[in-house]
Nucleic acid binder design. Sequence first.
DNA 1: ACGGATTAAACC
DNA 2: TGGTTTAAT
Length: 669
Amino acid sequence: MPVARPQTHEARVIAHVDMDCFYVQVEQRKQPELRGLPTAVVQYNSWKGGGLIAVSYEARKHGVKRSMRGDEAKEICPSIQLIQVPVAHGKADLNSYRHAGSEVVSVLARKGKCERASIDEVYLDLTDAVESMLSVTPPETLEEIHEEALKSHVLGINSEDSAKENYVKDWFCRNDADHRDKLLACGAIIVAQLRMDVLRETQFTCSAGIAHNKMLAKHASAMHKPAQQTVVPASSVKDLLASLPIKKMKQLGGKLGNSLQTDLGVNTVGDLLQFPEEKLQERYGVNTGTWLWNISRGISGEEVVDRLLPKSHGSGKTFPGPQALKTIASVHHWLNELCEELSERIQTDLEQNKRVAHTLTLHARAFKPSDSESAKFPSKSCPLRYGTEKIQEDALKLFESGLRDFLGCQSETQEGRNGSWGVTGLSVSASKIYATPAGTSSILRFFQSGNPSTSSSKQESDQFTEGTIPLSPSGSESHLGQDQVEQTNRASSILRFFESGNPSSSSSKQECDHFTKATLPLSPSGSGNHLCQDQVEQTNRPASILRFFESGNPSSSSSKQEYVHFAKATFPLSPSGNESHLGQDQVEQTNRPAPEENTRANTTPRVGQVEQRTQEWEYKPEDIDPNVIDELPPEIQREVRGWLRPSKRPNTSKRGSSIAHYFSPIKKG
DNA sequence: ACGGATTAAACC
DNA sequence: TGGTTTAAT
């Protein structure tokens, strides 16, 4: 499964950024009075208090863990605040978290290559940014390094707690430093800045790891949480891996890791070192064997790919035990719900990112009387046609087809109650998503209003566009009033401090602390600094990022507002200069390109829509299907002819026509 | 027959 | 290719 990749000769600087209990933070931003309290996000409140999917660090200290039931959590930690995941279409609705994740990506993508690894994690390749920093302002020339960077944990440097800052600073600024260490030091400074940017612009804290490859960075980011960062110098890799349990290594959490333990007696990554590459290869194959040999030495050539958007969208739901669906009608109902959500998501993707999905896939889990365990419900896929109704129709067809396969020649497969098959899980997903050509224009509008043929789908689509679903995080931060200007002025001193350049003067630092304390009371009682307190105890030195949340004096009643305004008002002041007045909606745009970054597209995407820098696919004029062009409205035909060529019509047995299918992507180059 | 809902990617 | 399997969060 893992694939060995050659390592590039040049030393890279890779960061892994991981949001701290992300869903909790999202909910706490919506409801700031929850900040500092033991909090968990829970879904499906009905049964045993629902299942926890995110737990705040305050709650973790009481032993609350993910995948616990709400009831258990209450027993262990009676004061815990349980927040329900929003529900839409009769199922958990993760849109607000997706959106928040996009906000974060928008900030982090400003330096170097950025890969969205999950809803709350990204990898960054900072090699270029570091190289240029090193050539202009290497750490030893900086007259001051920001506190947050100095709070980095650096693996392998020995230090006493009291003097640690100095150790880190010394490590950063050593003249005799290994070149690779200098690279990492710059990386740490850049990452600290990015994390502060994230906090300032989204109100979320995150943790990070900085190392020479993805694997090491990933491990590092988890070592000190929350709101801290960890550096892995090459010299400390060996010790780090020597004691790392094999199952904790990415890709080894499952069967392969088990096999390593039971078959080879390997319990730590270090234990792998004694096996010759050939032995590993003959047991696990060339690829996996080589990969294992490499990772045990901290070698991993896996590249950070520039991808800010997901490659597929899915919507699913389980129907455990007694809830199993036993009639076609009930399957039909839930399929419709799932398809509705999926349709909305791909529609949004189209509108915001100009991407078109090409494949619809249905997965199901089911049981039947006869052979009780082994048989699996087959996945089925087909060309994806835009429009909720079409998706619903196709998904049902796929299900029925799958059910026939599943039941074989078993007797009753028809309407109404049945023998006793039951469906315990359903999901639909959209994949093979390609960017449409950069040129926007009428073709997109055409897509956006659904399918050409049916007027009903157009209606639906319009309806949706008007906002049946909340696409922006409903929450405190979205309303920014007329007093924005005032706030902007007010925040200017903070900006100077936070803004990357030079946190030089000590006066500006003071100003910042003062401001922070005066305006950021997060808890009504005046004891709003639980998070910080906890951290102090735990680490004995609160990161300055945590202090951001500290509230010395919950002074004014308007303080909460001020806080929100602060966060909103400061971000648009990126050094780009062209700050026109933003409407309320556009305030949410956080990812304008930084000035020095010329590699970026010139669009200014919104949050929730994330800019793709590289156009991996393009459409060629030869791409049009002559059978279909006539179905297009005349004014569009001209345009389409410009950049499409005919493609084989997928699966002619499927009736109906999806415009999407007349676009066949051509690999660039 | 509860750790749910997603995502990704390798394999055949 | 589509469909299956593994894995991670």
